[in-house]
Write a protein that binds this DNA or RNA. Structure first.
Lengths: 350, 350
DNA sequence: CCCCAAGATGTGTACGTTACCGCATTTGCG
DNA sequence: CGCAAATGCGGTAACGTACACATCTTGGGG
């Protein structure tokens, strides 16, 4: 096995073309084309013969010729919360999307970008409608407001290509997904704190009221793993939509009344707000937002978990691009790895 | 900025073609073509006029038409140590290469794969020569044996596309690089152990004799960071090419004579061999080889640092593919992020 | 002054696929 | 049986680029 030739397609010095296929089948290229595109008007006999040849010789359309001939430009719509929301979490995703948009531009693929207010269903619906105005050949979206977006997506033509990112959403419409596993992320946080504090000491968990599946799953994962690793969990109860400053005081009080806590897990990007509240307290948070990066660099946060948002945006778009341009199967799912971020490997992840 | 259109090229409803360019310049497409490919035989006047138009209107060749017309298939050679060497470290890289080869196959790009014995310079030279037999349009290689490969690469035509992966090598020939930063990796290991053991306790470092820049840099990074974080380092001196089992005993003795050690860093994939040698000893190692993954799952290793070998192989090939197929700039460099691997995020990284 | 080389430019064809047109043949139906 | 509609099939013009070749222009040597 020292030497190998890797082609990924059936071996054939000169790739099989439509013309050759037509010659082999004793028909014209028009007939082969009709079989390939299932446009009908071909006798059962010829259809069988051609399909047999295709299966046997492994015909694959030449993507260059195909795209050149088809000639049309594609447009992909992208829908997600405004970049500035959630402590800038979305801006990294947008960056990845813009990067991939540039990468796909030479393939005549244009990206339409539309942000919405994640706390405003009407704005979300407006943005969706705006995006769908032709031309629009595919959609990548973060289904944060699933009650609004669910019915809208289900109303699309069944073969309309859709990819979700960040959050998955149950819906009838077939779709791809690019995101991470929040439950595992919570478990990872538990493991990190367990490594960083003496065995058996209790760990703190900050809860949030928001109706956010990610936060919920992360907390769940954290608790399950802590229990398995022998660390009791003390959770700060949820407060509904308290302002940041107030919430900060609340966490400070919580830590004062529980001095036995050796570590604290904040399952979202807010973690930067709670740095330095307890002396010697190990702090694990989520997301590479600017304030968090700063806090990590200065040692006010010990570790961060990241879901590589830039890659997420880029991959979502790449999936759609490859589907539109090269007919690759779409209902594909990508689970991004969970990054453990420390000051030393920060640079490579920005 | 709620709505954006992202195209990455100059706005123009119908993309600028050679034909249109010729019309604007008042010449034929042949003349434009000669200017584009710098084939000469065009008057200074026309050259200037056409180049002006290209700069002004931002002409980009249609990649599909370009590739279709050029018509030829490309062949890329890949050269690296045999998969089974280094505890299977290379097999993950090979896997990434095979994946990318499949992905690039529809673009008429064929990959020739050639493994060599990393301890045998003659075998390496043989493999290199074998690979270069036409057709061969580009080369991706792991320059492990730089004394052998350096001169060979420098002897290639100056515009022959070359990408190094895993290790970089100083050489005259322009080349891309895909790899990681071993110094930072060592620093990361220091940070991880510092988090996992009480402040100020000494940390152990296993040295290896091999003439391997990666190992050397990792050790250096580890020592520098430990010093900054206030942990003394006790290093096990190098032993030249001791067999695995003997080396294992040596490490065991080392740990017995240094019971004060709270953690141990093994800067390569051998780490699995040294699991469970000291009770309560925190163990940090390198690379997601099968034995290491197993040891991590079973808790015999606490943490692993990985350089995402599969991605490395894939990206090296992708770089060359994009260069050959779409004329993207080649002397590009990709530094892969350092992964901190724990049982909880293991799955996503395999 | 003519001829030829070299320079400058235009023309034509090929790449493989797509989509449409038109001709022949068959089918359906009153 | 006749005529329209449907079916089966071949032919061909794009798509934009690359490149070989034909054509036309110029200048210098004989």
């Amino acid at each position: 096995m020292a030497r190998g030739r890797i082609t990924g397609r059936n071996e054939a010095l000169a790739p099989l073309t439509i013309k050759e296929l037509a010659r082999l089948a004793g028909v014209s290229i028009g007939t082969v084309d009709r079989v390939l595109h299932q446009r009908g008007r071909v006798s059962a006999e010829n259809t069988a013969k051609i399909e047999g040849l295709i299966a046997e010789r492994g015909y694959k359309a030449n993507v260059f010729a195909s795209r050149l001939s088809a000639g049309r430009a594609y447009t992909v719509g992208v829908l997600m919360p405004r970049s500035e929301q959630d402590f800038g979490y979305w801006s990294a995703i947008e960056k990845g999307i813009r990067r991939m948009a540039t990468e796909l531009a030479p393939f005549q693929l244009t990206v339409h970008y539309q942000g919405f207010d994640r706390y405003d269903g009407a704005d979300c619906a407006r943005a969706f409608a705006e995006l769908l105005r032709p031309p629009c050949d595919a959609l990548a979206l973060a289904p944060i407001l699933n009650r609004v977006l669910g019915p809208l997506v289900d109303a699309l033509p069944p073969d309309f290509p859709v990819v979700f990112f960040d959050t998955d959403m149950k819906c009838e419409h077939p779709h791809g997904f690019v995101g991470q596993d929040p439950f595992l992320g919570g478990q990872l946080a538990a493991r990190l704190l367990a490594l960083a504090v003496p065995a058996g000491l209790p760990l703190g968990l900050v809860r949030f009221e928001e109706d956010d599946q990610h936060l919920f799953q992360r907390a769940l994962g954290f608790e399950s793993r802590c229990s398995a690793l022998g660390h009791p969990v003390i959770a700060l109860p949820q407060t509904f939509a308290a302002p940041v400053e107030e919430r900060r005081l609340e966490v400070a009080r919580f830590l004062l009344t529980h001095p036995q806590l050796a570590g604290l897990f904040v399952p979202n990007a807010n973690v930067g707000e709670y740095a330095r509240l307890g002396p010697g307290l190990r702090l694990v948070g989520y997301d590479l937002t600017d304030p968090n990066v700063q806090a990590l660099r200065e040692g006010r946060i010990d570790m961060l978990i990241s879901q590589r948002p830039e890659t997420m945006g880029a991959e979502a778009l790449r999936l759609l691009g490859r589907h539109l341009l090269f007919h690759e199967a779409l209902p594909a799912s990508i689970t991004l790895p969970l990054d453990v971020v420390l000051p030393e490997n920060l640079e490579g992840l920005l």
